[in-house]
């Protein structure tokens, strides 16, 4: 488990927005205020899918200053491992769930002279909270948001009505594209870019900005990897003195948790470094998928990030 207390919540609203995205709202079970948070923060939602525990991170999209309720929006992933499907198919108003304290790995640089938000699809959610924060505390911002189509444009109406001068929306099916080079050109010094969306979009923004001479520190991005399925494998946990099996559809981190082994985590998406685990011995190959370890560390065989990375081979002994 991770150190902080979990929060018991009750689902107070389930609002389908379109064919793919549904919003879930939570209040604290039994009443009381929820913690405030900073725009860009996520919460890890725990699900009990029959015998399978699932924990998925979702960006908090509600007003960070509003302590009465939290909201997340979940995009249904029909080919994923099932967390989003569970949310869509099984979670109803009145259900009691457990969520983590907010954690922010995508926070605003409050020194910025201007915040430039670039969103793709469901990547809009952290910006919804950041925009509310900017509106409350002041500061220049601008949003460029691409959606597949008007029908799938989550929160477009709300954004363009409330922020007609700041919000710019682009529809793929109408061949509308962000002219990124033109957008970057002429931004005042001290502008920071935030990008959340598919990996291709993040890479495009980072590479284009770098080519235009933008500093690395001025480009912020959030890319949560969902753990991918893979071949089952066996792991020996040296400290706990247990041998566990990692199933096809679960991550190593989830398998440890299922076996009652205490394992720290924050993002569950290969980004934060919290679950980094030392490898004691191995015969086989690692399938590293995280953003945390560098190439040399990946090659060394000395560390693994159990939230997203897997293993194929005969023996794997971990320091857990």
């Amino acid at each position: 488990m991770s150190g902080a207390q979990k929060i018991a919540v009750t689902v107070t609203a389930v609002v389908p927005l379109n064919d793919l995205v549904t919003r879930f709202e939570f209040r604290r079970t039994g009443g009381g205020l929820l913690p405030t948070f900073s725009g860009g923060a996520h919460t890890v939602v725990e699900m009990r899918d029959g015998d399978t525990p699932r924990m998925n991170p979702y960006s908090l999209m509600s007003d960070p200053m509003d302590q009465t309720s939290y909201a997340i929006s979940v995009r249904r992933d029909d080919v994923g491992r099932g967390g989003s499907l569970f949310m869509h198919n099984n979670v109803a108003v009145g259900d009691e769930m457990v969520i983590s304290n907010p954690v922010n790995l995508f926070s605003l640089d409050l020194r910025a002279k201007k915040q430039l938000f670039i969103a793709g699809g469901i990547g809009i959610t952290p910006f919804l909270a950041q925009i509310k924060q900017m509106e409350r505390l002041g500061g220049r911002w601008e949003l460029h948001y691409t959606c597949r189509s008007e029908a799938l444009g989550s929160y477009v109406d709300e954004l363009t009505t409330q922020h007609p001068n700041e919000a710019n929306v682009y529809y793929d099916d109408q061949d509308q594209r962000i002219d990124l080079k033109a957008l970057l050109d002429g931004q005042p010094i001290g502008t920071h870019i935030y990008v959340c969306g598919p990996k291709g979009m993040i890479d495009w923004v980072r590479n284009t900005a770098a080519a235009e001479g933008w500093p690395r520190e001025g480009i912020h991005y959030e890319e949560f990897l969902a753990p991918q399925s893979g071949k089952p494998f066996e792991v020996k946990l040296a400290i706990s003195n247990k041998v566990i099996q990692v199933g096809e559809q679960e991550s190593l981190l989830e398998a440890m948790e299922r076996s009652g082994v205490d394992a720290p985590y924050l993002c569950r998406g290969g980004a934060c470094g919290q679950c980094e685990t030392r490898v004691i011995d191995y015969t086989g190959n690692f399938i590293h998928r995280d953003h945390w370890l560098d190439d040399a560390e990946h090659a060394s065989g000395e560390k693994i990030m159990p939230c997203v990375s897997r293993f194929e081979g005969k023996t794997l002994v971990l320091d857990r």
């Binding site: 970057l184 050109d185 931004q187 005042p188 010094i189 235009e212 001479g213 001025g218």
Partner: peptide, 10 residues
């Protein structure tokens, strides 16, 4: 010079 500068300045 810095006040007038745009992103991309080296």
């Amino acid at each position: 010079a810095f006040g007038d500068a745009k992103m991309g300045l080296q």
